[in-house]
């Protein structure tokens, strides 16, 4: 099914939303992405990803937490839903399965196996 796949950026954003737990909104996510994943993304790119994840039902959002720095505007705060968690777990399981299926000889001389 097309609508439920997780894109690479989407997966990371979903994870970061989990990391930030109750304070996941645009700027915070951008900052976290930069710090943890060394990834530069514009605010709109992040919002596009968030919007898509919400459409797929992996995220839920609410408006809250206005501050002065934001010119009195509220944040769009995100939270991972149950199905979001399931999607993340699926993605991880799939990867683990794939890792396990790689024959030892294939990566024998590579750094990965050290």
């Amino acid at each position: 099914m097309k609508g439920t796949n997780l894109g690479e950026l989407e997966e990371i954003v979903l994870l970061v939303v989990g990391v930030l737990f109750d304070d996941a909104y645009g700027v915070a996510i951008q900052e976290e992405l930069r710090k943890r994943c060394d990834r530069k993304a514009t605010l709109s790119t992040i919002h596009v990803a968030l919007h898509r994840l919400e459409e797929k039902g992996y995220l839920e959002s609410r408006l809250d937490g206005a501050t002065n720095e934001r010119g009195g505007r509220r944040k769009l705060l995100f939270r991972v839903t149950r199905s979001g968690q399931k999607a993340l777990a699926n993605a991880r399981d799939m990867r683990n399965d794939l890792w396990r299926a790689i024959p030892k000889a294939a990566f024998a001389n590579s750094l990965v196996m050290k």
Partner: peptide, 17 residues
């Protein structure tokens, strides 16, 4: 409107920092 408030807020926050 929802996205507008959030995006303008995000933009402004980043601007000030």
């Amino acid at each position: 409107p929802r996205l507008l408030e959030a995006s303008l807020g995000d933009l402004e926050e980043k601007f000030r920092s």
